[in-house]
């Protein structure tokens, strides 16, 4: 009964929402006093926190993963754009690597969009948010890309990417229902595909335990190669979070512009699915090409 009541309020609320006349006011030019005491922005991101994270993970980025970029100049230096990449590794390091690389090289922030599940985890959720993570909600994405003109990063594979077994490495999963394409169309921003090589080898999953995952309330519960190899040296806890020194290579692909008007209520679903599949194939092709030129997974 309540739910029907609440949906009633929303569904019809457009009738109340006639565009109001603009009233001229006299005191509009005054500057508001804004006594902020932290640098946390409206999205929850803190540049100080980002600086700290970049400083801490800098050695891993440079010396452990030895990250190399191709085509970084294809990422615009201003205006909104949606970065789309493949997602892998039991604890996926790709988001952190992409955000760090672009922030260091281009000097502009990247907001990583991930499942709302993060928000429910104490401490982790807050740190994730301060370090530039926001919930992947269509309204968030639209505001971030369209209104604020920022860079957003999404992994359309979702949890299916990082939870896949090592035998499926570098095989991209389904790209959801193409929501990311629709959001880019509505926001009027290009999609910039990024192929990431290395994340799968940094923490490969050998087996998964769905029952354990269910009882713990986590998306998946893996046994990783890292745990098998490193537990004798580092113990069970550290070996679960320590990455293997895989060589990272990232290739930025040509931006995809959509020739559709922004701000539409809906877009042709078949067009959306076609574009989504085309982007998936592009990233897949780029990955195969990167792998073709890789001599060794550790040395690159």
């Amino acid at each position: 009964m309540t739910s029907s009541g609440s949906s009633k309020v929303r569904s019809g609320s457009t009738s109340l929402v006639a565009l109001p006349p603009v009233i001229e006011t006299t005191d509009s030019d005054q500057v508001l006093n804004d006594p902020r005491k932290s640098d946390v922005d409206a999205w929850g991101r803190s540049e100080n926190m980002r600086k700290f994270v970049r400083k801490m993970t800098g050695p891993i980025y440079r010396n452990w993963f030895r990250v190399e970029w191709e085509g970084l100049e294809k990422i615009p230096t201003e205006g909104g754009a949606l970065l789309v990449a493949n997602h892998a590794g039991a604890i996926p390091p790709d988001a952190a690597v992409i955000m760090q690389g672009i922030e260091q090289e281009l000097g502009r922030p990247v907001y990583g969009m991930a499942d709302f599940w993060f928000r429910t985890v104490p401490v982790v959720g807050t740190l994730w948010n301060r370090a530039g993570g926001i919930a992947a909600h269509p309204e968030n994405a639209y505001k971030l890309l369209h209104d604020d003109g920022q860079l957003g990063l999404v992994f359309p594979e979702g949890v299916k990417g990082p939870s896949k077994l090592y035998k499926d490495r570098y095989q991209l999963r389904r790209f959801g229902r193409g929501g990311f394409v629709e959001i880019a169309m509505r926001s009027g921003v290009p999609i910039i595909p990024i192929a990431v090589m290395g994340a799968e080898d940094a923490m490969p999953i050998l087996a998964r335990f769905p029952t354990v995952a269910k009882s713990l309330g986590v998306p998946y519960f893996p046994l990783t190669l890292n745990q098998v190899l490193l537990t004798p040296v580092l113990g069970p806890l550290l070996s679960s979070v320590a990455y293997l020194p895989a060589k990272f290579r990232l290739r930025v692909l040509d931006p995809v512009h959509f020739d559709v008007p922004p701000n539409q209520e809906r877009y042709s679903k078949s067009r959306v699915m076609d574009e989504s599949e085309a982007i998936r194939l592009q990233i897949q092709e780029a990955l195969f090409d990167l792998l073709r030129h890789r001599r060794n997974r550790w040395l690159g």
């Binding site: 949906s7 609320s13 409206a42 926001i134 919930a135 909600h137 309204e139 505001k143």
Partner: peptide, 13 residues
């Protein structure tokens, strides 16, 4: 937790 960061007047609960 499923909320958007900013509700507009037409956002749903």
């Amino acid at each position: 937790p499923r909320d958007p960061s900013f509700f507009t007047e037409s956002s749903k609960r």
